[in-house]
Amino acid sequence: MRLSTWKYIFKEGLGGLGKNFWMSLATITTVAIALVVLGIFLMMATNIQNIALYLESQVEIAAYLDDDFDRNRKSALISSVYAIDGVADVQYVTKEEGLERLKEQFGENSEILEAVEDVNPLTDSLEIWVSDPTLIHEIAASLGEVKGIRKVYYHGEVVEKLVQLTDMIRYFGMILVIMLVLGTLFLITNTVRLTVFARRREISIMQLVGATDGMIRWPFFLEGMLMGFLGSLIAVGVVVQAYLWAFEMISNLLPFVPLVPADPMLVNLSKLLVLSGMVVGAIGSWVSVRKYLRA
């Protein structure tokens, strides 16, 4: 097609919004609402996954060392623990530190520990964090075989329950995301179809005058893309504001909840929303126009 034809197509496609004002407004609003719902849900899902990940990262194993453990062998011991599959982090706790912690835990009643202060009954120990809680039994077993470790403590049953819970959160989160994405796609394409349906008579008139499929289709394509773009911009505005507000409120009220920081997540989410708005708007009108072109 000639340059002047493309000029015409762009003028029609981008100017069409004003000419079909109410229909376009309805479509843009629908796109915006659908993407706001999707965006907020995605943010919630991301945060819930984050919480699940955080909980899993708290899973801890305590390993008490032999009474006569030689502290010169400390680094050798730590590296042999690190060598075990699934170990994320190791911290060495001396028996003096261990006693301090006990005192803190007993708080006001710490006098009862004074009796044992001189003859600290504790041994040095290791705190071990795991990268994958499902491996906890294997890791504990391997730890038991490390020379210098006397006894291994961990809450196996609690960890198993936790893993079940986080697995369930991931699984249902995934299903909900898929359903919501499909629902959003359906809602947007359907709305775009309606705008094309309202103008099907125009399509048949253009055909009678001798317009090729491309000349009819491209303006609709651009218009669909533009409506998707505008709708997604509104959605991005709402979603970003909502997250910043919720982030501040939750950080104040429930400071122990680990929230996903706004910075990389909101930028990525915004890109995703804008891109999907444009793509779905454009494809929706392309497909709907095709139907009336063949009619």
Binding site: M1, S4, T5, Y8, M206, V209, G210, A211, T212, M215
Partner: peptide, 11 residues
Amino acid sequence: AFALVVTEATQ
């Protein structure tokens, strides 16, 4: 004009 535009007539 539309009938001419579709034939890619010049402005």
